[in-house]
Write a protein that binds this DNA or RNA. Structure first.
Length: 507
DNA sequence: TTCCGACAGTGGGGTCGCAAT
DNA sequence: ATTGCGACCCCACTATCGGAA
């Protein structure tokens, strides 16, 4: 199959807003792809590369060679070349990558260049990724979407599942099973504003667990072989020897567990997320990193114990299996209750201990791998500040033509404002329209292609999860997960919150 | 007919490793 | 020694479609 076929399908998918139409376009293409190119087609049309990452990003794709007029590139040829790009390493590799990318793009027509460039940058913007592709595979293979979804959960990689479905139908899908050593898409959580709201949503007793501000892990053990995977299913075994040692000591030789690693201070309180994150990312001298920043591990779910798959069992039965296998001090602390008052008290206590919040979990629901299932609901405290808009950046994609990303500043009692970060979240289309107009009225000072500086007059209420140390911003601190709640037309900039207030929140 | 679950899109701060400067 | 880039850790929120209620 030719790359131009995918480029045309992608354009058609983007042109139709209806999901069912997108699915039809994708299924039609899957119906005519050769079996040995099915994985490539599925990967590309759901926004992925079979190579996952190839060391080429936005900057490397800025100036492309002139396009050709005739489309001749096959999927296989493109895929082979991208594998060669990925394989470059060592001195001279950046130039070698660049040369290969240029060679590849010089062989493509304009629509192919656009498609491939967007794909590599991760900005396909066709309104269809994995979720829609699951439906398209089901349609093309004549199988129920639920079977495709189940296989995806267990295999973790849609192109493999889709290729099997296209060639072997439902039977091939049913052959996928949980395999120790191969990661499963982790279950995700929805969120709620309070424990009471979360309990209300679940209806009935639930488990309220500590939410640790660390890094999610999935651990597989078969005999002495232990593998640890990240949330995106990358293997990080070598970076977390503490986990490997802990799990080897458990009284079960066949395990799949879900948990979190976190750096704790000597007094048992959590280190800032940046510390845990940096430790987990360290690969070059793990022993040294470990001595400086030891990791603790806590488990909260069991997907398999001693040869028995637990994914489809109710949460409580999985937790019972976990408790039989993992020593109590390594099980994430929890409270089972249906009482909102004691639930809120538990939440308050967890926050006092310095942790991020809680996850309220249904006792009944199975492990909804890879989905933001309704069975888990996270609750975190929310801080707010009234800050001043210092500038805004032009948006892209569906926000093109709108001033979108806000630069936020706190008032300096000594005069002026100190920038604390940016946010684009929480804005409705209506608000985007309003603020674009307003900012252009207030525009002043240095303005580049992306940024419009404005007179610091507008006050906006910002929610955020915490204040982190920052080397990027002049005040030495930045807001974590900042988002807009509302504008405050009732306030003037001299009534905005000060940097001193922000600094007091950093501890 | 209305409601709501699931998805895609739009970007945020921080850190590490590597190659280039 | 420093800088730029890619990858990945954490992530919130709105708009939209279409099936569920």
């Amino acid at each position: 199959m030719l790359l131009i076929d995918l480029a045309r399908t992608s354009a058609a998918v983007a042109a139709d807003s209806a999901r069912l139409a997108k699915i039809r376009h994708l299924a039609e293409l899957l119906g005519r792809v050769e079996p040995d190119e099915a994985e490539i087609a599925i990967a590309y049309l759901s926004g992925d590369l079979p190579q996952r990452q190839i060391g080429v990003g936005w900057t490397s794709l800025r100036d492309l060679p002139d396009p050709r007029l005739a489309a001749t590139a096959t999927l296989r040829q493109v895929d082979d070349l991208l594998s060669r790009v990925k394989a470059q390493a060592g001195p001279g590799s950046q130039a070698a990558r660049k040369a290969l990318v240029t060679e590849l793009f010089a062989a493509l027509t304009a629509p192919e260049q656009t498609f491939l460039s967007r794909l590599i940058r991760g900005e396909l913007r066709q309104g269809a990724l994995e979720g829609v592709m699951v439906e398209a595979i089901a349609k093309a293979a004549g199988a129920p979407a639920a079977e495709v979804r189940r296989a995806l959960t267990l295999r973790g990689w849609l192109p493999a599942v889709g290729a099997a479905a296209l060639s072997g139908g439902v039977e091939a899908l049913r052959a996928f099973h949980l395999e120790v050593g191969r990661p499963v898409a982790p279950m995700l959580a929805q969120s709620a504003a309070s424990v009471a709201a979360a309990l209300d949503k679940l209806g009935g007793p639930a488990a309220i667990e500590w939410k640790l501000d660390g890094v999610r892990i999935q651990v597989h053990r078969s005999g002495d072989a232990v593998s640890v995977f990240s949330r995106t299913l990358d293997e990080i075994t070598g970076q977390v020897p503490e986990v490997v040692e802990a799990v080897r000591a458990f009284p079960a030789a066949d395990l799949v567990l879900d948990g979190e690693v976190i750096a704790l201070r000597p007094d048992g309180r959590p280190a800032p997320f940046q510390v845990t994150s940096g430790r987990v990312a360290s690969r070059t001298d793990v022993d040294k990193a470990r001595r400086a920043t030891p990791l603790s591990v806590f488990f909260f779910d069991a997907l398999r114990v001693d040869g028995v798959d637990l994914l489809d069992l109710p949460g409580e039965e999985r937790h019972a299996a976990l408790a039989r296998t993992v020593p109590p001090e390594l099980v994430t602390p929890r409270l089972v209750t249906d009482d909102a008052t004691s639930g809120e008290a538990f939440f308050a206590e967890v926050i006092r201990e310095g942790h991020e919040g809680v996850v309220v979990k249904s006792l009944q629901t199975p492990y909804a791998a890879g989905r933001r299932g309704a069975g888990w609901i996270k609750v975190k405290p929310r801080h707010t500040l009234d800050l001043v808009v210092l500038a805004a950046e032009w948006g892209s994609g569906r926000r093109e033509g709108w001033l979108s990303n806000l630069h936020l500043g706190a008032r300096d009692p000594g005069g002026g404002f100190v920038m604390l970060g940016k946010t684009f979240k929480g804005l409705t289309d209506e608000l985007l329209t309003w603020q674009t107009e307003r900012f252009l009225e207030l525009a002043e000072g240095p303005t580049d292609d992306w940024t419009v500086a404005v007179r610091p007059e507008l006050v906006v209420e910002i929610a955020f999860d915490g204040v982190q140390r920052s080397s990027r911003y002049p005040g030495g601190m930045a807001l974590r997960f900042a988002r807009v709640i509302r504008y405050r037309p009732d306030k003037t900039a001299d009534q905005a919150d000060t940097v001193d207030t922000v600094r007091s929140l950093m501890l």
